[in-house]
Simulated assay, not measured.
Amino acid sequence: MAFKRIRKAVLPVAGLGTRFLPATKAVPKEMLTIVDRPIIQYVVDEAREAGIEHIVFVTGRNKHVIEDHFDIAYELEDTLRERNKTAALEILDKIRPSPGTTSFTRQQEPLGLGHAIWCARDLIGNEPFAVLLPDVLIKAGRGCLKQMVDLYDETGGNVIAVEEVPEDQTQSYGIVKVNGNANSAVVDINGMVEKPAPGTAPSNLIITGRYILQPEIFDLIAEQEKGAGGEIQLTDAMISLMQNQSFKGLRFEGESYDCGSKAGFLSANIAFAMDDEVLAGEVRPLLEGILAK
């Protein structure tokens, strides 16, 4: 059976990034760099690899730098041409989206992830779509979203990326309830719990910040009341949608980094630097020297 293609993706980028102040006072957290690229660029590249044709950025105040990053920089590019910096020009050309393949809409109030997704409803329309949380970077040979799209093409429905955490850490995450074997590469999800109390988690599989969702989610978000933290939670809408539609959890191949935390951000920088053969040769002795002190 052929299912509607996943053509569009929503990237919620309206958050304030308060955990990184003062760095994020004037620079969006999504523009902080991992090695030589802003976090948001890695996520956009992952979406493109998965075949996404149109990306909707849900922004907030002072996020214009993200829009500028994906636009033409005339003065910079003219200077590079005058200096015959062809390699640098090729880098800029590679990251620039084709005309008409990005949209920017604003979440005017910080009302939660569910509300941010709902703000993109008219740009997504009546078709399934992906959601990628830019706080989460996933280093993988084949992108996490690409793995999810391949599964969706087989099963349809809704797909969520999941991964294991130690049982003593489950209270820090959204946890899925699983019907059947929780150790399978693909699991059937029949419930979710947001940050369960210690010892009460239904599994040790966490939601990792990548989703493929059906458009019916928009109506459910619009109807629901505010949840935890006085925000409109995406988890609550997914639980409602689960009553009528299937949800698959994919144990993706790759390593995730929570770049919303300082430790995760630093870990991602080291991990991606060590992926570069030239840079790794410089970074390794530096790390060894620091650890030896």
Score class of each variant (00 low, 15 high):
62 N>M: 08
84 N>T: 05
152 Y>Q: 03
265 F>T: 03
254 G>F: 10
22 P>C: 12
227 G>M: 03
173 Y>T: 12
217 I>A: 08
292 A>C: 02
287 L>W: 00
199 G>S: 08
153 D>G: 03
102 T>D: 05
2 A>K: 11
45 D>G: 04
150 D>L: 13
58 V>E: 14
151 L>W: 04
217 I>Q: 12
142 R>C: 04
229 G>S: 06
258 D>A: 11
192 M>W: 04
252 F>D: 05
127 E>C: 07
225 E>C: 10
97 P>L: 08
89 L>E: 05
80 L>I: 01
9 A>V: 04
101 T>K: 04
94 K>F: 12
161 A>L: 09
234 L>C: 07
143 G>A: 11
273 A>S: 15
151 L>Y: 05
280 A>V: 02
45 D>F: 11
15 G>C: 01
27 V>W: 03
71 D>P: 00
109 E>Q: 14
128 P>H: 10
193 V>E: 13
288 E>M: 12
160 I>Y: 04
156 G>C: 11
243 Q>L: 13
162 V>Y: 02
177 K>L: 09
174 G>T: 15
205 L>W: 01
222 A>C: 07
134 P>E: 10
283 V>L: 15
103 S>P: 11
216 E>S: 13
23 A>Y: 15
61 R>Y: 09
82 E>D: 13
198 P>D: 14
197 A>M: 11
182 A>W: 00
251 R>P: 00
78 D>N: 10
273 A>E: 06
